[in-house]
C-alpha cells in the first residue's frame, strides 16, 4: 500500500473520509484484500484501545500527596539553608568591616601590614622570639 492508501484507510477507520475520497476507498477495498484485512483488524484494535483502562495502584493519591509533602520539606530546608548562609555571610562582612575600622582607628591608615597586625614589627623581633629556644 502506498502512503495515500494508508491515509485513506486511517481516515476510513476514523470516519474522516470526505465525499471525494469515498470512491477511492471503495475502489481500494474492492481491489486490495490486504487493505480489507488491515482495516478490519485496525477496527478491532481500535475497539480494544477504546476499552484500554489500566489503573495506578490504589494508593496513588496518597503517594502523590506524600511526594508533595516531601518536596515541600526539601524546599523548606533549602530556604532555611539559604537564610543561614545569608546570615553567616552578613556576619562575616560585618566582622571584616569592624576589623577595617579597628585598623584605621589604631593606625590612622589602612595598610596590608596594619591588617596583618605587623606594623611595628622589625626584623629583630623574630630573633628575640627564637632566642629563648
Amino acid at each position: 500500500m502506498n502512503k495515500n492508501q494508508e491515509h485513506l484507510l486511517v481516515k476510513s477507520l476514523l470516519n474522516e473520509t470526505r465525499q471525494a475520497e469515498e470512491e477511492q476507498l471503495t475502489h481500494l477495498l474492492t481491489s486490495n484484500t490486504h487493505a480489507i484485512d488491515s482495516l478490519n483488524d485496525w477496527k478491532k484494535i481500535y475497539l480494544l484501545l477504546q476499552n484500554f483502562n489500566p489503573q495506578f495502584s490504589r494508593y496513588f493519591i496518597k503517594h502523590t500527596l506524600n511526594r508533595l509533602a516531601h518536596q515541600r520539606l526539601i524546599q523548606q530546608t533549602q530556604r532555611d539553608l539559604y537564610k543561614w548562609m545569608l546570615r553567616l555571610s552578613m556576619s562575616a562582612v560585618a566582622a571584616v568591616f569592624l576589623l577595617l575600622m579597628y585598623v584605621i582607628w589604631q593606625e590612622n591608615s589602612l595598610s596590608i601590614d596594619g591588617l596583618l597586625g605587623i606594623t611595628n614589627l622589625w626584623s629583630g623581633d623574630f630573633t628575640n622570639l627564637l632566642a629563648n629556644y
Partner: peptide
Amino acid sequence: ETMIARIVIGMLGNTAEAEDVGQ
C-alpha cells in the same frame, strides 16, 4: 487519574516508573 494512567501506562508499560511519572 484514570486518564493519566492510560497515557502513562500506554507510553511506559505497567511499571513502577509509570506510577512515578503519573505522580
